[in-house]
Amino acid sequence: MNTEVKKRYISLYVENRIGVLAKISGLLAGKSYNMDTLTVGETEDPTVSRMTIGLTIDDITFEQVKKQLNRCVVVIKVMDFSDIPIHKKELLFIKVSGCGEKDKAEIFRIAQAFGLEVIDYDKKRVLVQCVKTESANNDMIHLFNKTFPSRIETVRGGSVAIEAISTREQ
């Protein structure tokens, strides 16, 4: 087994009940496993929620995480996305303030070049939506920060991931 850490994703089906999110996050915290991201939402079956958890972790610890989650009564199924093709995306909003006309034109150009969507604006502000992988979103934050220093506000949702059907593109 490898002790080198790497980024991994797992997907969980859990009971959609009060306290389940606290149970899962508490379990990981109690065992000192650091999560990078956790997202949760109701599925097509309203009694079931699905979580996507991103961790930067070594092989041995990751095996433990999966076993610990598996033995939780409220966890219905654990899926390890380490070695299978998946699609994963994260929603990121970037709001830029204090924009002049030149800034606005630049934002629209960036949006076009990187496939972002301008979803709202007024005279001085522009709101951009990015739906990309976590690392691509990191790049976008970096780019906007460099271009519009101290004028951006960001919020991101954490990754969601699902097994691919016939593509390997993420």
Binding site: I18, G19, A22, K23, G26, L27, G30, V73
Partner: peptide, 16 residues
Amino acid sequence: IVGITNSICKYAVTVR
């Protein structure tokens, strides 16, 4: 009590 004992029992649940 469910929140308090979650990490030290096999299963804890509130009947709703």
